[in-house]
């Protein structure tokens, strides 16, 4: 198979640039602070990047299909609360986690069904479900966090799997599965085709609704996994957990090279972006910059990333900027 220059330039370059930025930023931080390359700090960075990467995997799949899911932060909080309630009701760790993950799947199914079957706008549907789910978390908890879990459960948030934090291993597995789905399965192919030309896919005899719903279910699942990690890390299921995490998830996906127009995306790029955001945050903390600035920075990064990706797709379409 011969390869074209144009397409490989468009595909490889953004992730390569991102990787170079990650390396440069890390080197810069290590010059400023000898602590940066200490194993403890690197572990910390890895641990910090995990939520972005877990959320970002589902978000990438959905955005590639031309959709969006704003309810992931709320879904994560609800999944954590369901796990907490189940654990406090005396259920074992495994059934409690299964119940929490099932919550994510269920709300993914509901989001996907509204979008694919009722043909409603994904932005509005998931904005509404964000509010509905957040409401449920407050109702279920009476707005009081549920705390105190067994060591077995906490292992998922603060334990170690060999030399690595458990959370990093979970994130790696989720991202790897996401990459396989996106690049090697019909679901991934159809996600890209949905974002590129939904009508073409429908005319080829594919049930587009089925695949759309499946994508939102996957996104709900990754949100619930993130909910597991958050709850186990803090040893507390907080109804306000994951607040604004949808922004981080979108930032990670878009910075990683996923086009907001749909039709193109990269899990590898998303992982680099997740690491980059964690390094950036680490740098801000080490330089004593207040965390308020982090939210401001996230917004700016989304803007810049969308601008860069638009420029890229415009030049790919041969349009002048």
């Amino acid at each position: 198979m011969r390869r074209g220059n144009i397409s490989s330039w468009n595909k490889i370059s953004p992730q390569a640039i991102l990787f170079a930025v990650l390396i440069l930023l890390s080197l810069g931080l290590s010059v400023h602070s000898p602590f940066f390359f200490k194993w403890d700090n690197l572990r910390n960075v890895l641990d910090q990047s995990t939520l972005n990467i877990i959320f970002g995997t589902g978000m990438t799949l959905v955005i590639v299909s031309g959709g969006i899911d704003l309810s992931v932060g709320a879904e994560a909080a609800l999944a954590g609360i369901i796990m907490a309630i189940a654990l406090h009701a005396g259920m074992g760790v495994t059934p409690a986690i299964v119940a929490g993950l099932a919550t994510g799947l269920l709300f993914g199914l509901l989001n996907g069904s509204c979008i694919a079957l009722l043909r409603l706008n994904p932005f509005i549907v998931t904005l509404a479900s964000m509010s509905i789910i957040r409401g449920l978390t407050l109702i279920l908890t009476g707005s009081i966090p549920i705390s105190g879990f067994s060591e077995d459960f906490l292992w998922f948030g603060s334990g170690n799997a060999g030399p690595l934090p458990t959370t990093a291993v979970i994130a790696a597995v989720i991202a790897l599965l996401g990459a396989v789905v996106l690049n090697w399965t019909k679901l991934g192919y159809y996600s890209t085709a949905l974002g590129g030309n939904e009508e073409a896919l429908r005319r080829s005899g594919v049930s587009t609704a089925t695949y759309k719903i499946a994508l939102y279910i996957l996104c709900g699942f990754t949100a619930a996994v993130a909910g597991l990690v958050m709850t186990a890390r803090l040893n507390s299921a907080d109804p306000t957990a994951g607040y604004m995490m949808e922004m981080d998830a979108i930032a990670t996906a878009v910075l990683g090279g996923t086009s907001m127009r749909g039709g193109a995306g990269s899990i590898g790029g998303m992982v680099i972006a997740g690491l980059l955001l964690a390094v950036l945050r680490n740098g801000l903390v080490m330089h004593g910059i207040a965390s308020y600035y982090q939210q401001l920075l996230t917004g700016l990064i989304i803007l810049i990333a969308i601008f860069a990706s638009e420029m890229r797709s415009r030049s790919r379409d041969g349009l002048s900027i």
């Binding site: 397409s7 019909k186 192919y189 890209t192 085709a193 974002g195 590129g196 030309n197 009508e199 073409a200 896919l201 005319r203 080829s204 005899g205 594919v206 086009s259 039709g263 193109a264 379409d317």
Partner: peptide, 21 residues
């Protein structure tokens, strides 16, 4: 059809096999 229903952001084999990979 006149609009050809191609997925512009995908390569040639993806379009040829769309729906029957």
């Amino acid at each position: 059809y006149q609009d050809l229903a191609l997925v512009d952001c995908r390569d040639v084999p993806c379009n040829v096999f769309l729906g029957r990979e």
